[in-house]
């Protein structure tokens, strides 16, 4: 396999950074999924075992982690739609930059809907 040359032709900007973010969030979600299937599998061991491990998800630190994870998924999902539109919609490549700002706008709106509710569940009320 040929080695990459020292420099790079990429010049950054929206196209490259959205790709980097899509990659990073994809890997992050993947590793979380492996852990998440393992912790859920504890329902096969005993109610007590599952409840002990799942209670870790209710601590403030993990609550913040969940917020980060949801943010990663929301970005990856919306940007994934953008990637699909760039590929299949005839005007997609022309509007890829505009679409990234639409993605970021939808991201902010979605997180604004999710975060207050989730943070209240984590830090407020609850048991």
């Amino acid at each position: 396999m040929p080695e990459a040359p020292g420099g790079t032709l990429y010049r950054g900007r929206e196209g490259m950074w959205s790709w980097v973010a899509h990659r990073v969030t994809g890997v992050l979600i993947f590793f979380f999924l492996l852990v998440h299937v393992l912790d859920t599998s504890l329902v096969r061991v005993s109610p007590e075992a599952y409840n002990v491990v799942i209670s870790a998800y209710k601590t403030p630190i993990m609550g913040l982690g969940e917020a980060g994870l949801v943010a990663a998924i929301v970005f990856h999902a919306f940007n994934g739609v953008r990637v699909i539109l760039v590929d299949y919609w005839s005007k997609g490549p022309r509007y890829h930059r505009v679409m990234l700002y639409v993605v970021l706008g939808l991201f902010v709106v979605t997180m604004a809907g999710f975060l207050p509710r989730h943070l209240m569940n984590v830090f407020g009320g609850g048991h």
């Binding site: 859920t40 329902v43 569940n121």
Partner: peptide, 24 residues
């Protein structure tokens, strides 16, 4: 995934009501 996240984290007390009985 959005359905999953909504039902498990947004409805009711969110993450606080997830336990064995919830999964059951």
């Amino acid at each position: 995934i959005f359905g999953h996240l909504f039902v498990n984290l947004m409805v009711g007390e969110g993450v606080h009501r997830i336990d064995f009985a919830f999964v059951g």
